[in-house]
Design a protein around this nucleic acid. Structure first.
Lengths: 246, 246
DNA sequence: TAGTGGTCTAGACCACAAT
DNA sequence: TTGTGGTCTAGACCACTAC
């Protein structure tokens, strides 16, 4: 005991100490230096070895627990979970997801209009019915294959989408540029048949199954800032999710 | 300032103080006593008012942040998120989900066999190919409608499924009874056409879209303990997920 | 009994937002 | 400048597990 992976700390870095530890432990797990089933040094040893207080070390390990990479058991210790690390759905856009996966997504803007919110949209976005919203419809390609048809609605008061080239940046990037930071998203994932138009733009047969996602996203002030209805080609996309019991 | 909902603490209770606070704040949000956009008392005030240290209060609020019910912003405060509270997918079985939603799920066991793990299953469950596993296929009804066709595989060394009446308890309940506690699950959600048999047992038309989920679950020792392939009728079921950027 | 994580205290200093 | 959450310290006692 007491060996474990080498961890180096930079106290002059703006990166919090607990995060530096978490990053390096995660690296050791991903690289295989810490194998599934291995125990991580207990919190007191690790704190002593790094010259930190126990709560700081504990906070670091909690990051890994939240990611589902390790499990803690009182009286036993902290063990690396079996099974390959599967990237979970995070609070990122599809564009970010694909870019991170080394893909090269391309986006075609099918429509960008300023419309009045109907009752459903107004409810989702916490607006008055009739309030101005941006309605943007985009088709995302992966290589030459159409992957997803995306319809998003955003309060027009938040930003000026008209001036933004959505073929070049993702929607979330445009929001970030406008100073809007997503913090919470509520999604509903389901499935249904493609209608005539969907099957045409997605190059699927009529009536083919689609994977659908409806999402409402909220910013760091708790405001609803985006409502989206997306349809994915299920042969090209699936949602991966890691659930943790804490 | 300094008003906020009344919170009562029971120091003799085995329920941790931070959890008692979180429960009561959550209750105030769900009941509407704390409305969307409202600010929660700041951490120091709340700590002072309750006679607790700040880290304890902070831990309580973190529970709500993790649930996506409030957002914190440095220099500003903690605010209740807009939008109705949507129950998120948690680490529970479909049976538990439905029971909690006030439904009355019924289960038909279509098959329960002890088989040898093929390569795919062995890899998912971290076993040697050929190791004995339970293979159980069940059909879940909601009312009179078939809702989901579920195929699960579990290491036979873990428990004796043969002796368990799976029509009466969920699979996860059977595992809990055997002293096995799920801690982490990795899911992949997609969609495809129903094949002939699936459309028959699910009372769907042939080729109808199905919502599919593959899951590997791990216990509190990090062991893979269950692999499942489930198919849901998309007109009766969808996955709801809350994502939080922490 | 020894070892582990779970909870809790009573502070400290800092970074960022609003005014 | 003031107020907020973000980070960190240096301990304490408890509950549970394994032996």
């Amino acid at each position: 005991m007491g060996a474990g992976p080498q961890i180096s700390l930079d106290r002059s870095s703006p990166v919090p100490l607990y995060f530096q530890i978490a990053e390096q432990l995660e690296g050791a797990i991903v690289s295989g230096a810490l194998a599934p089933g291995d125990k991580i040094d207990n919190e007191l040893d690790l704190a002593g070895r790094l010259g930190l207080s126990r709560p700081t070390v504990r906070q670091a390990i909690q990051v890994l627990v939240d990611k589902g990479m390790v499990v803690r058991k009182r009286g036993v210790g902290t063990q690396v979970v079996h099974g390959k690390v599967r990237r979970s759905v995070e609070l990122t856009s599809l564009y970010d997801d694909l870019t991170a996966a080394g893909q090269d997504p391309r986006t075609e803007v099918l429509g960008l209009r300023r419309v009045e919110a109907d009752e459903d949209v107004a409810r989702e976005l916490q607006l008055e019915p009739g309030a101005p919203v941006w309605s943007v419809e985009r088709l995302r390609y992966i290589g030459d294959e159409p992957l997803a048809l995306m319809h998003n609605l955003l309060p027009a008061s938040l930003l000026d989408l008209d001036a933004i080239d959505l073929t070049r940046v993702g929607l979330y990037a445009a929001l970030r540029d406008a100073g809007i930071w997503m913090r919470v998203a509520k999604q509903r994932i389901g499935s249904r048949r493609a209608d005539a138009r969907e099957s045409r733009v997605l190059a699927e047969r009529k009536g083919a199954p689609l994977l659908t996602m409806q999402r409402t996203a909220y910013d760091d002030a708790g405001r609803a800032v985006e409502y989206g209805e997306h349809a994915y080609r299920p042969d090209l996309y699936a949602f991966e999710i890691t659930l943790v019991d804490r």
